[in-house]
Design a protein around this nucleic acid. Structure first.
Length: 426
RNA sequence: GCGGCCUUAGCUCAAUGGGCAGAGCACCAGGUUGUGGCCCUGGGGGUUAUGGGUUCAAGUCCCAUAGGUCGCCCCA
């Protein structure tokens, strides 16, 4: 294969656009409904924004970033996620002087160098939502409600919400050092080899291991929510109280973790079935330490990253059809050179009047032209031949019914407008 | 980064135990000197992913590479 898009990338062809336009339109609608403003940050940032914002030691930073040096010698990185860039923009533009929290959303591509599989691509698209500058758990709630609302609005069913708290720098280190690690060490030789390695590198990660051998031990492991500091405990209990007050079902998942200091308190994911192993539709949580990691003042924040490819996989899996996009409504067919010229002129007038129009080209038979009009889904075919040019008329054929009429050339615009309005209202 | 499976026309797929690369759809043309959908006829389109190897002979067997796919890891 000579013509090939880069590994892990996809061309989104016109026939797939209804899905994308629909998902993006609903995303903008829901974000506006929740009072979020759109922010567009660059597709690349200086590398330290991600290296410090996401953190050394994460898979993303250590082995998945598209990092390159530009001609001025700066190290740049294609964004592997949105949050670090959005928080960078918050700091750069002094958004702390705006009413807090600052509610921002973005829509666009992100890049990670991973092995592709179903639902995972090297270029992928996200709806990213952030609320920066407020630590009230009601903001955590709002972000979760927004994600909920978005999926519900699209008609997606059968999702499960996974929620946990991973504490903060005040309580997590003590839980790890004094509780979790000693517990796991006690069963070290019964853990899977991979998990024994994790225990040394990043003990929290043992909790979300899928190794069968380790399951009984993980099942009974001491849970971080029983070791939270007062502030984290109050935060999480308040959030859970809100969720129950609003009757939102969720699963308290003790094994849902994020292994970095910047990530604090709330963590959540939404899981789907039927789209393969990459079943996380979105991931979110609090990152009260991130702004400081980027060199700014302490600034709390919470957000969610919603994968669009996985949503579209799910829409297809669940048989949910997006609304069709309108195509050209008028197709102009012709015979002979005079007809062709008359058609080109008519096409200019129709487009100027806002009527989506395409003309036949290539001097094919009228039969072929009519076939093309049909295939392109035109509502009307206009026929211009020697007869029409001589008589000063246009033959109008309504494709759905086959009804055909000669219409005066001078009245064609009005005629089409009336017939199209009739078609729209029926 | 690691493992399993797969790769034949634009698409979906055939091709005995190695023996002339095919069909349907799509595209183009004709059947109607100016009329789409159904039908009929014909046409164009292939270095069988790429590169090696075995063999008189490879789409078919072997090796490597690339891509896809399903998992691992991690997450969107």
């Amino acid at each position: 294969m000579r013509y090939q898009s880069p590994k892990g990338t996809l061309d989104i062809l016109p026939e797939d656009q209804p899905y994308w336009r629909h998902v993006e339109a609903r995303a903008r609608h829901i974000c506006a409904l929740y009072g979020y403003g759109e922010i567009e940050t660059p597709v690349f940032e200086y590398t330290p924004v991600f290296a410090r914002g996401i953190g050394q030691g994460t898979d993303i930073v250590d082995k998945e970033m598209y990092t390159f040096e530009d001609k001025g010698g700066d190290s740049l990185t294609l964004r592997p996620e949105f949050t670090a860039g959005v928080v960078r923009a918050y700091l750069e533009h002094g958004m702390h002087v705006r009413p807090q929290p600052v509610r921002l959303y973005s829509l666009g591509p992100a890049f990670r160098h991973e092995r592709p599989q179903a639902g995972r691509y090297r270029e992928f698209h996200q709806l990213n939502v952030e609320a920066i500058g407020e630590q009230d758990p009601a903001v955590d709630l709002e972000i979760m409600l927004l994600a909920w609302h978005f999926y519900d609005d699209l008609g997606i069913r059968g999702l499960s919400f996974q929620v946990n708290s991973t504490g903060c720098p005040a309580c997590r280190p003590a839980y790890l050092a004094d509780v979790l690690v000693p517990y796991l060490r006690g069963y070290q030789d019964r853990l899977a080899p991979e998990d024994q390695r994790r225990l040394e590198r990043n003990p929290l990660r043992v909790l979300d291991s899928k190794e069968a051998q380790s399951q009984p031990i993980i099942q009974d492991a001491p849970r971080i929510i029983n070791y939270l500091c007062d502030e984290c405990r109050r935060h999480f209990e308040t959030l859970r109280g809100y969720l129950e007050w609003l009757d939102r079902p969720y699963t308290l998942n003790h094994r849902l973790v994020r292994g970095l200091d910047y990530y604090t308190k709330t963590v959540f994911e939404v899981w789907a079935q039927g789209i393969g192993a990459q079943n996380a539709l979105c991931g979110g949580g609090r990152y009260d330490g991130l702004a400081e990691a980027l060199g700014g003042p302490p600034t709390p924040g919470v957000g969610v990253a919603i994968g669009l490819e996985r949503i579209i996989l799910l829409l297809k899996e669940q048989g949910i059809e997006p609304p069709p996009l309108p195509g050209a409504r008028v197709f102009i067919a012709y015979r002979g050179d005079a007809g062709k010229r008359a058609g080109l002129q008519l096409e200019v007038e129709l487009r100027a009047a806002g009527i989506a129009t395409v003309s036949a080209v290539g001097d094919r038979s009228l039969k072929a032209q009519m076939k093309q009009a049909d295939r392109e889904g035109a509502h009307f075919a206009l026929i211009l031949g020697d007869d029409e040019v001589a008589a000063g008329t246009v033959t109008v054929r309504e494709m759905a019914t086959g009804e055909q009429a000669g219409v005066a050339r001078s009245g064609i615009l009005d005629y089409l407008r009336v017939r199209m309005d009739a078609g729209l209202s029926s």
